[in-house]
Amino acid sequence: MAVITLTSENFEEEVLKSSEPVLVDFWAPWCGPCKMLSPLVDQVAEEKNFKVGKVNVDDEADLAEKYNIMNIPALKLFNGGAVVKESVGMIPKAKIEEFIGV
């Protein structure tokens, strides 16, 4: 499934009002572990047909603050408009799949 770039404009529509669960990857371009994790998240999205969104915390400081981001990379799983699961730091692909339960 396509990976969506999330902003404060589309976050509500794409994540909070989504009829399916969404894996949100909070990252920044200067963060090495984020750049390690990001392609793995993309692979999982593609292979498992799971909806994934990316929040660049530099561009979207309001979203980062709203969701209390204090370490990146941070993965948050949203379902029914709320965060149901969280993970911080680099994790291998198998753990991402485990995290989203596929």
Binding site: W30, G32, L40, M90
Partner: peptide
């Protein structure tokens, strides 16, 4: 490897003490 390639250096924004490379990010080096 248990986590991801690169090891600890991926956390370093800038490497400036590797001979022959004036400046590189840890991610790019790894």
């Amino acid at each position: 490897e248990q986590l991801s390639y690169g090891g600890q250096i991926i956390n370093t924004p800038e490497i400036e003490n590797y001979p022959g490379i004036r400046n590189i990010s840890g991610f790019d080096f790894a």
